[in-house]
């Protein structure tokens, strides 16, 4: 994207921690200048929580540029870790942007837009239905791709509830069995909408994440049964650990009743969380399941095909992958 309207391609990106927005100004022919943090007109980095006391408050951002107001300059859209999108209005010009200090949350009807599943939003601007108005298309943590159709007018975008273009991933995205045939797209979809094959129709590129167990193909029937039994026991232990975290979060939320969620990260409340978390981890039941989980992970290693997993195979028998899937429009 051309951030500063000088006709030279620039590179912009969000990030995970601390979630600041980065600009690498293009110098032409694929060369870029050193990274700059994108700031608002008061000199503060553009963040979900501009006055954060704790750097994790704004972590997980994805950015794109769009002329929201149809006034000839580009505004910034930022997708957040919790699946929402805020806009920072450009109060300057195309070549000399100057961004507002306050976040304006993108809405669907009367409420803020929040991606299905409620986690991650990587907004991309594309006129998906070719009606002359740019729409928002986004990936999400659940692996789906969602189209928010713009039914407003120029300078006054209005978004409809989302239509899934790609269904969400079925499964946790962790320790999935690698099948013989092509895998399916994983979780945490990050997308591009582009005419990939130059046929005049917009396609979708979907980047994903998933960890797979690459099981050896030479296992005997007895070994297959042993491995299946290990998996079943591990799933039980994992479920207990996950449920414990869910229950801990619910208890913390209860404890924080009456406290605005934006204050949950204060040093005082973080300490409360830490104490509750440590108590959970030190409980006999949790320790037992944790130990069992680690024992089963280790025992699984001998069933894994090391020629595929390679050096990446550590204590976890599952190995991470991140593919780029092409959904070519018919």
């Amino acid at each position: 994207m051309d951030f500063d309207g000088d006709g030279v391609l620039d590179l912009v990106s969000g990030s995970y921690d601390p979630g600041e927005l980065s600009l690498f100004r293009g110098k032409g022919r694929g060369a870029f200048a050193a990274r700059e943090v994108i700031k608002d007109k008061s000199g503060k980095p553009i963040l979900k929580v501009p006055d954060q006391k704790n750097r994790v408050e704004s972590f997980g951002s994805w950015m794109t540029l769009v002329d929201w107001e149809d006034d000839g300059d580009l505004d910034i859209l930022v997708g957040t870790f919790d699946g929402m999108i805020f806009m920072r209005r450009n109060e300057g010009t195309r070549s000399s942007p100057s961004y507002a200090t306050g976040n304006e949350w993108v809405k669907v009807g009367a409420k803020a837009l929040r991606t299905p599943g409620g986690e991650h939003a990587n907004p991309v601007i594309a006129d998906w239905d070719g009606d002359g108005h740019w729409d928002i298309v986004t990936g999400a943590a659940d692996g789906g791709v969602y189209w928010y159709r713009n039914i407003g007018e120029r300078g006054r975008p209005t978004f409809e509830p989302p239509v899934a273009l790609v269904a969400k991933h079925e499964g946790t995205g962790y320790s999935e069995l690698a099948a013989d045939e092509e895998p399916k797209p994983g979780i945490r979809s990050q997308i591009a909408v582009t005419d990939h094959d130059g046929d005049g129709k917009l396609d979708i590129l979907l980047g994903d994440f998933c960890t797979y167990l690459h099981v050896r193909k030479d296992l005997t029937p007895a070994q297959k049964r042993s491995f299946a039994s290990l998996r079943e026991k591990e799933n039980k232990a994992t479920k207990f650990l996950r449920d414990s975290m869910e229950e801990l979060r619910a208890r913390f939320k209860e404890r924080m009743k009456g406290v605005s969620e934006s204050d949950w990260n204060t040093p005082e409340n973080s300490a409360k969380w830490q104490k509750m978390y440590n108590a959970m981890k030190d409980s006999p039941e949790y320790k037992k399941n944790r130990a069992e989980y680690e024992r089963l992970q280790k025992a699984s290693l001998e069933y894994i095909d090391r020629s595929i997993a390679g050096k990446r195979l550590g204590a976890d028998p599952a190995v991470a992958h991140g593919y780029v899937w092409l959904f070519r429009r018919k």
Binding site: M84, K111, T115, P116, G118, Y146, P161, A167, S260, S262
Partner: peptide, 14 residues
């Protein structure tokens, strides 16, 4: 403030 309590959108099926 971040509108934290916003429920996620329900999508129309693909």
């Amino acid at each position: 403030k971040v509108p934290y309590d916003t429920p996620p959108d329900e999508p129309q099926a693909a």
